[in-house]
Design a protein around this nucleic acid. Sequence first.
DNA 1: AGTGTTCTGTAGCCACGGCTACAAAAAATA
DNA 2: TATTTTTTGTAGCCGTGGCTACAGAACACT
Lengths: 230, 230
Amino acid sequence: MYTNYLGELSKSLLFDNIQREHLADLLGCLKPTISSYKKNDYLIIADEEFKSLGIVLKGRVAVFKDNAAGRRVMISLLSKGDMFGEMLAFSKQKKWPATVEAQENCEILFLAKEKIIDECRNVCPWHKTLIENMLRIISERALMLNKRVEYLSITGMRGKISTFLLEQFKEAGTPTFTLPMNRNDLASYLNVSRPSMSREMSKMRDEGVIDFHLSSVKILNPEALRGMVE
Amino acid sequence: MYTNYLGELSKSLLFDNIQREHLADLLGCLKPTISSYKKNDYLIIADEEFKSLGIVLKGRVAVFKDNAAGRRVMISLLSKGDMFGEMLAFSKQKKWPATVEAQENCEILFLAKEKIIDECRNVCPWHKTLIENMLRIISERALMLNKRVEYLSITGMRGKISTFLLEQFKEAGTPTFTLPMNRNDLASYLNVSRPSMSREMSKMRDEGVIDFHLSSVKILNPEALRGMVE
DNA sequence: AGTGTTCTGTAGCCACGGCTACAAAAAATA
DNA sequence: TATTTTTTGTAGCCGTGGCTACAGAACACT
């Protein structure tokens, strides 16, 4: 059944640190179901009852959210190895907050939420690793969201740009580094418009604080940049 | 040692569904440490190595973050029963991202991160409940952050206000309901300025879409409100 | 090299919303 | 009831940044 996918699954974060040969045992204990979907099929419709979390085995799926006006906004695009619904599995929330749609023909593994914690704690030693992985995945996602909120809470284009660049600078260690996204993605990450962001970056270049060409950026005056944070 | 606090701890979310009489056993197995701090003492300084998560037993503590410009911003204010550092305990991140300071004289229980998962899985049956609680707490926090990001990503005052009111409306079930925060808190939750928000709400009242007096709000025209979401 | 596609920088217009300031209402304290 | 403190509504000023539009650069594809 899922034997074809053992190799793929063992690369997934949820099954990290679990040997491929033990994975089969663990799956035997988790008893997942596998479903196939055709392009444009809905895997999940918002407000449906949550029963199990999903892992993409093959193909790509899109997570959407319909806002109150009825327009659908894409939240994320998932492919092989990615998981969805992991936060719902452990919260009190009972309904899916989003809609999930197949972008291509795909196969999805579903894991019932009760199986993840409740079963075979003593019998199956890999379960402990599974729980650890789950805690790590959710915690890390929460930390990412936290950082995102920080960026979004900054008022002012300058503040956002300089905070972001300083963080990249700190991470890279060197004053010259490559941006991890293109202008469009960066703009929507910071929730500003792309042209406005470009305009401001150019101003900052004119002022001699930074220099850049496409995705390559150089911090010329870190102190001045820090002064622009607020 | 912590026997004085058993009653308090059993009310904490982390120890939910654990009988007070079993809590003592569990704590014996978790081997927490308890420290006292005076007003203005630092419990944690940002960038220190993370070793254990904390639970406030007595007093109040403030979580701060210093932005790149050096200005400190309060993230949250914690009191009896509140926990901090729970996301760090399970992520790969090794350093505290924030500073924690005592607002009053207080007592804090610290729980080493290894103890939470690694120990006594088979011996101590309450451990399973503890892990479940932890997963629930972190998942719920992630969901809250997710919702926060959604609000912050809405461009336009109208969009934010109407989305928020529609959500409250849905939650309440009735067109008349009470706002869960005052204007200041709501404004900073939506990351807008308080006067601008008030101005826009008044406009919406003039247009006959909503009515309100202080914290009491009435939705007069839900359809029109939905049209303002984007 | 040639073509189409995506990405980036730049310009100009103008509305949204931030900010300060103040007064009235409500709530807390005495 | 009187007094202080907090919360809320309103006004006016004006800068920030969103938006459309376009041209040139970079990239992908053949």
